[in-house]
Design a protein around this nucleic acid. Sequence first.
DNA 1: ATCCAGGATGTAT
DNA 2: ATACATCATGGA
Length: 297
Amino acid sequence: MESGTIPAETIPGALDLGATLESGQSYFWNRADGRMYDGEDSRGESPWYWTVHRDEVIRVRQSGGGVEWESTTDAEPALRDLLGLEDDLDAIIEATPSDELIDAAYESYRGLRIVRDPFFPCLISFICSAQMRVARIFAMQTALREAYGEAIETDGETYHAFPTPAQLAAASEADLRELKLGYRAPYVQRTAEMVADGEADPADAEGLPYEEARKYLTQFVGVGEKVADCVLLFSLGYLEAVPLDTWIRSTIEEHFPECDRGSYAETSRAIRERLGGQYAGYSQTYLFHYLRNGGGD
DNA sequence: ATCCAGGATGTAT
DNA sequence: ATACATCATGGA
């Protein structure tokens, strides 16, 4: 077992691991204590989070402005990518147009970073996200891991990796409905099959211009424009992607009504420009987290 | 009970 | 292209 710390001085800008991992952008990490995020509890011990990445358990927790980690091999390079630690947060905020609401969101949760989750878990989790609350999306991913993912023993504890495309493709729709996925069950099964069979490959999307990449991802079953934007933003590094979910739509209606252009594509372009263009997804994610926790009321 | 949650799909217009 | 009903589940 190796361990180490990624010091704050090597991270451009602040880091808030709790906000990053429990803001509803990632379902790839799990709190070891099983509790849910409470934006208030900055007191006491920082909670540990774990995931299974490339067949290895990685555990992390906040340490000052940095990250303390444990794994079987050096996890720092992977964590720098997965947790968005290379993003120059100060520069991103500096490049964002000033606005009362946006500024309040950035100030409230400074240190929240956009994750780069592995593609397949991210894709499946956001297919599951349709008409679901954050807590239940986490529950669905846990159910999928424990039912179909490889079990890994580390330090006398059992961790389950997220299932591979082939493992999920082998499940039946009925199996997945038993895990309470509801009408998303066939979407998950068919998309897992598409990925397992190589019908569509995320590697083909990665080089594409943003809107073409979004179009590419909608070929997966259960993936519309909104879910595609989530995958582009939270997995593939398209920081300009602005997922138009119910929260941001109501914000557009109340706060940026001139950006409502009717269609998803046109409204997306308008709000993307209003939020600063290339890093618009950062603002969207801060706003989502801020509003969902009662900010702006 | 009714409404809603990080929406997508199939069908009719 | 856009409008609408339908799709499960659980918490408020």
